[in-house]
Design a protein around this nucleic acid. Sequence first.
DNA 1: CTAGGGTTAG
Length: 687
Amino acid sequence: MDSQHRSPEYSSLLLAGPRAGPLKQAHARLVVTGHGHSLPLITKLATLAVAAGAAPYAHLVATSHPAPDAFLFSSLTRAAAHRSLPRAALAFYRRLLSAALPFSSFTFTAVAKACADLSALRTGKAIHAHSLLLGFGSDRFVLTSLVVLYSKCGQLAVARSLFDAIRDRSVVAWNAMISGYEQNGLAERGIEVYKEMQVAEAVPDSMTFVATLSACAQAGALDLGREVERRIVSERMDMSVFLGSALVNMYARCGVVDKAREWFDMLQERNVVTWTSMIAGYGMHGHGHEAIKLFRLMRREGPPPNHVTFIAVLSACAHAGLVTEGRDAFACMRRVYGLVPRVEHYCSMVDMFGRAGLLDEAMQFVHDYIPGEPGPEVWTAILGACKMHKNFNLGVEVAERLIALEPENPSYHVLLSNIYALSGKMHHVEKVRNTMIKRRLKKQIGFSLIELGGTSHLFRMGEKSHRQTREIYQYLEELVHRITAAGYMPETESVLHELEEEEREGALRYHSEKLAVAYGLMMSSGSTTPIRVIKNLRICGDCHLAIKFMSAVENREIIVRDKHRFHHFKDGKCSCCFSNLNSTKTDHGVPLLISHNGASGDYPDCTDLAYQKEVTDGAAVIDCALQVTKDGSSIDLKDVSTVVTSQFASLAVVIEDIKHVAEVYTLNFNWEDIANNLKSNRPPRKS
DNA sequence: CTAGGGTTAG
């Protein structure tokens, strides 16, 4: 609008835009016309160069200026962070430091994002401390960027404490916190934040819904997913490709494939993620043919598939026994799309041959296609096939190879003992067991969840803490009698030491998934809605068989989502086994609400302890640095020590963190004085 | 003569 007020030089820069070639021409013009030292022009030039991806050139332009100012380097820092050039952003930030130029909060948001992109926790902490030293400790933009930083580095407790410290939280801050939990596998906590947001009457935007739907997908929280969908529709939100994909993904991963497809068809815009989510949804539920059909359509009229698409396609083929289709897909991956297969693709292929009983082909594939020495993932896939098709000699060989590769990994010992158990060599099973005990190797603990009437019920093997324990066990006993009468035979030997499974002899009938399913059936007899259970590990072979029978004798659809996929049990069959896949009908109607926590949540493990420690340390750093005066030149030692000694446990951490800031950013403090002062002001120990 | 921040899908 005011282009007539701008100099021709400035206009020529704008005209060049974020393109390296034209920018260099404009640069030449600046030099020739004598504007080569104009800071505003050089700033615009260098910033555009960063936007063009030419960070080294921008760096050269900026540093060759005789008197660069703060505006120049902070603009460059921002531009680089924005273009996801984190290393360049940090380099420009260091220029500001070494030139002793002033900082603004804008610089910190940029450089925090750069650290987040790099997952650089140590540098990120130093930048955090530095921002505190300069008095930006309560800037809501800086705090939000730090929430993202600590989330990306897996430090959720620190992220949360910073989030809590934000006064007047913006929707961006809420979104960052929801997505932070979700990305770290703590979907339940993300959902809690979404609910807190409602209570706080903060206004959500489309990113809020995208993040929340992802959390729902991860947690299997179908009811909340539907609620979010209703809001999206009733508020007439713009259906961006992000939002659309999030909806497809939510429905697909919650097991409502038809609804996922409805959205998929309805969307105006579909990209590779939308297509991949839908294909993966089909594959996960055993609809291999649908997956392939959609993949073919994608090849004809969709965006080019990528690595993730091929993982979905190959896994769908493996589970549906579509060997020819899988082979074709694998072949076109590199030839047509130039994608180099990764270990996941190799594993899916091996798994595919293995499941189809083509063990020789699997071995041949490993030999012909996998470059170098195959990794443990590939051997594990081979082993799965050996187990399935009872090839004990090869199985033992492979398991021993795996143990040699990673002696401390408990799951390989479990696999070996499974093979021995299946082949009836019980004395070998005992030997492996003893080895595990001697080396203190423990299996992961499994649990299953079912949500009824808005309350989530968690079961571990042999769980006795539920208030209806007696009824549940009684119900399960009766159920086992009935399925036994129908022909069920416990897979005793294999279950005795099942893969990644709850163990303890004689307790196989009380595996967590059996308890959860029994509870669901008991509490809803007479109903026709499917039973939905989520398990954190893979379902065990015996439970798989038992639940097939349960679906028949109870005439109920039972859906179990395990670590890898969905199992739709109906009429004595499961959707995951292509050999008995006759009915491919998906669920419909209102299912029992299921909730699930991916990692810690209510489930007692060591995570919460770790959280406690983080909170203390993080709070101490913040409190301490807040006591430091704004220009960073002097510290009131008394104030610092008062605060820090109240957080006595984390004294060392505080000193270390601030020291690190000083080293990197050449701030001159007298560390010995500070340390001594802090120590002498320690509170008396409790007697 | 110079901008303007932090958050999204498999």
